[in-house]
């Protein structure tokens, strides 16, 4: 198996390139679009030859969009800040709640523990719209609508199950003997959790946190319904470019590039953890 003929190597290379091309093409195309004006984007037939321009990016960063028809203010940079705040906040809360819960589910099998754990996971399966409508009513009544706290709370539906299930798998993989050994050595339960379980599940916790961050970042529907303009993340903010005077494809593309850049960078940087976390979650789930 480890000896490949040059022909095999060539074919393998071609196949891999095809796959990469297939998956990377949308991103590549978006990057191209973001460097064009609406006119060159919409010409027919489409062409890869154009004069690149940073107008779209400049418009987004400065918040001033001057088209040939009118001038409008956009709040994209604020949306970006919202995205960061909401995602990071949600992940932080989810880690705080989810990691101890995952440990409990991994180590203490009690009557109904599997059911509780599964119920938590099932929140991921439920169509978000199902809970959204009643939730938006409640939120308005208790004053959580259009607040960061309210959004972060709802984002737990995304983050918490993910972290719970992935981290639980990691905790289960740690030999209980290690913890027994540390306790028998004379350490309390809490210090065993902090000194043994947490560091050893560290990579798993990091992977789960990253994944949760990406999922939270990409969320659209919760924020669309529950947040008004000043609390909206980039996913919802991009809608602003669909204006009465036409769809600003160039700006949308630039906005998308800017909004996926952080998660893409994060994913590439922590690729190994992510794959590990995802596959472990899959196996254990």
């Amino acid at each position: 198996m480890d000896h490949m003929s040059p022909v095999e190597k060539g074919l393998r290379g071609i196949a891999l390139s095809a796959v990469v091309l297939f998956f990377m093409f949308p991103i590549f195309w978006i990057v191209l679009m973001s460097l064009q004006t609406n006119e060159t984007i919409l010409r027919s037939p489409p062409s890869m030859v154009f004069e690149p321009t940073f107008r779209n990016y400049i418009a987004i960063v400065t918040g001033k969009l001057d088209s040939n028809v009118a001038s409008m203010d956009i709040t994209f940079m604020r949306n970006l800040w919202n995205s960061i705040l909401l995602s990071a906040g949600s992940v932080a809360v989810a880690l705080l709640l989810g990691v101890p819960a995952a440990y409990a589910f991994a180590r203490h099998k009690f009557r109904g523990s599997e059911e509780v754990a599964f119920t938590l996971l099932s929140f991921r399966f439920a169509p978000p719209l199902l809970v959204l409508l009643p939730l938006s009513l409640y939120f308005q009544q208790i004053g959580l609508a259009n607040t960061y706290i309210g959004l972060i709370w709802v984002y737990q539906l995304i983050c918490l199950p993910l972290i719970l299930w992935i981290v639980r798998g990691y905790f289960e993989d740690i030999s209980p003997d290690l913890e027994h050994a540390y306790r028998i050595a004379g350490h309390s339960w809490l210090s065993t959790f902090r000194r043994i379980a947490l560091p050893l599940a560290g990579p798993g916790i990091a992977a789960a946190g990253l994944l949760a961050f990406i999922f939270a970042w990409n969320n659209f529907i919760f924020a669309l319904v529950l947040a008004s303009a000043d609390k909206q993340p980039v996913t919802v903010g991009a809608l602003a470019f669909v204006t009465a005077s036409g769809i600003q494809y160039g700006q949308i593309a630039a906005a998308i590039v800017l909004s996926i850049a952080p998660t893409l960078a994060l994913a590439l940087y922590a690729q190994r953890y992510l794959v590990e976390g995802l596959s472990l979650g899959a196996v254990k789930g």
Binding site: L178, H180, A181, I184, A185, I196
Partner: peptide, 20 residues
Amino acid sequence: VPPEHRGIGMAFQNFALFPH
């Protein structure tokens, strides 16, 4: 009595050394 207060030393078959 919880394990940490029993005054016991134990060696495990799989060694159970803390890897970190």
